[in-house]
Amino acid sequence: MTDQADQSRRNFLYVAAGGMGAVAAGAAVVPFVASMMPAADTLAAAKTEFDVGTVEPGQLVVIQWQGKPVFVVHRTEALLKQVDGHDEMLKDPNSEAIPEVQAEWMDTPEKRKYRAIKPEYLIVVASCTHLGCIPLFKPTPGRKDWGDSVPEDWPGGWHCPCHGSLYDISARVIKGSPAPHNLHVMPYKYLSDTKVVIG
């Protein structure tokens, strides 16, 4: 039998049929993997609308965007002043290290400092860039209100309870923290004076 058969023709058919089968099997994997990616209804929830006018001066509100917590702080004049004067304590005072900590609208040194389209409303992702815990809001400077959980020269901002990372009132990470980066700024824009769409 074998010596009469055209082996090269047989091998070609073998490889061709096997190859087609492999391509078909590979194509069949696509829908199964794709099904595990976010579904249409999950993607539809990818944007969040919020009225920052509802946040009282000095107040912090945590809202949800794509299932992640987002800080919205209404910064008073006093809080805005706390942004200045400690650049030497910061890992990345101008928010330049990675794309996630900056945005297109950060086109002036002022905006890079305040990290907000409207300086009085800071909106950032509330996940510590170390391992994702939600930092505690400790806005007043010094140790008076917070004890030794913060350093003596505390400029006011956030303190992460998980591993002690510190951020200033513009959510910029302070040197010596385990967190590598400032809190991330997600895309957002103002639809009206106070209506914000996040995402």
């Binding site: 696509v30 829908p31 199964f32 794709a34 099904s35 990616m37 579904a39 249409a40 209804d41 999950t42």
Partner: peptide, 13 residues
Amino acid sequence: ERIMRDVNFGWLI
């Protein structure tokens, strides 16, 4: 119905 409408390729599976 979510499988049919929202999940990627849910209708197929």
